[in-house]
């Protein structure tokens, strides 16, 4: 009798845990998965061109506006605004961040070794890899050792009240021929002041969500992964904001290496947001 009760208790516990998992991780319905052989070949490593910011017009060097066509500038989809269509409240936040950045007082979370998050993973400095499987696609970024998972197995987003807002959010998608289409919700946004879209200080709220389309194409004989992201944010934006990032296939044999940001970090940010550089003995070198 005791053993039956124990087994029953364990079973109930497992069912409860399973239900809890489904609520928190998203529910999977029996989607018809594509054949592995039908999926596009996105193997190899891919490097972004076009700068590490979304809003090319924002990029300055030491406060001086640079030519958007130069390295460091961003790329926006044709016919769309480079500048996010902020409402007045969030435009003011953005302008404040730009001013702080130009004064060297906007500590980029990345400089504190905090991972990119989404959509900033598409602004990453170093190459990325795409692992395409019928049930999931993984985006692996070398810089900050980031992994983003996109479920294509019929998983649905968790209900709003059960979402855990984090740096990469929760992404589910499907294939439209050779295009991966996915939506992302449950992002942190600027709620904890540690997740930005790029180094300019561009931020969105935790209510931001996105629809992303990725497909492989060619440009001037080069293999290209075209990433188009439509960002919507009922708190911060007055209209959908479409941005585009381009990843070109690296030469065969290009390797991804380990990246541990905290391995030997000689810089710290003080309470004013200044970066202090330490020497071997811990003495501040630059202030």
């Amino acid at each position: 009798m005791k053993s039956i009760l124990t087994i029953t208790a364990k079973s109930v516990s497992r069912v409860f845990l399973g239900l809890t998992f489904l609520i928190n991780a998203g529910v999977t319905h029996g989607a018809e998965l594509p054949e592995f052989s039908a999926l596009p070949d996105w193997s190899g490593t891919w490097s972004r061109r076009g700068g590490t910011v979304f809003d090319s017009g924002s990029w300055t060097l030491n406060g001086v506006l640079t030519d958007p066509s130069q390295p460091g500038a961003g790329v926006s989809a044709p016919g769309t605004r480079a500048h996010p269509p902020y409402n007045a409240e969030w435009e003011a936040v953005y302008q404040e961040h730009l001013a702080l950045r130009d004064a060297g007082l906007f500590p980029d979370p990345l400089t504190r070794c905090i991972s990119h998050g989404f959509p900033r993973i598409f602004n990453a400095l170093a190459p990325v890899e795409f692992v395409v499987r019928p049930e999931q696609t993984w985006i692996l970024a070398e810089h900050t050792r980031a992994t983003m998972r996109i479920y294509t197995d019929g998983t649905e987003h968790p209900p709003a009240e059960a979402r855990w807002h984090n740096f990469y959010g929760h992404s589910v998608g499907h294939w439209e021929d050779d295009t991966l289409v996915f939506t992302t919700v449950a992002l942190k946004g600027w709620r904890d002041r540690d997740s930005v879209l790029d180094r300019s200080g561009l931020v969105l709220s935790d209510q931001a969500h996105a629809t992303t389309r990725i497909r492989r194409t060619e440009e001037n004989g080069e293999d290209l992964l075209l990433v188009e992201i439509t960002l919507e944010d009922p708190l911060a934006l007055t209209a959908p904001w479409v941005v585009e990032k381009r990843f070109y296939k690296d030469a065969a044999g290009t390797r991804i290496f380990d990246y541990e940001c905290n391995e030997y970090n000689r810089a710290i940010v003080d309470e004013q947001g200044r970066s202090m550089i330490l020497d071997e003995d811990g003495k501040v070198l630059n202030y």
């Binding site: 060097l61 030491n62 406060g63 950045r101 130009d102 004064a103 060297g104 906007f106 500590p107 980029d108 400089t111 504190r112 070794c113 940001c261 905290n262 970090n265 000689r266 810089a267 710290i268 940010v269 003080d270 309470e271 200044r274 970066s275 630059n286």
Partner: peptide, 18 residues
């Protein structure tokens, strides 16, 4: 620095204007 409660955090290179 951490014990002094200066709210410092590990960071790397913001060299704007430096």
């Amino acid at each position: 620095i951490l014990l002094l409660g200066c709210q410092l955090a590990a960071a790397h290179h913001s060299t704007v204007g430096q």
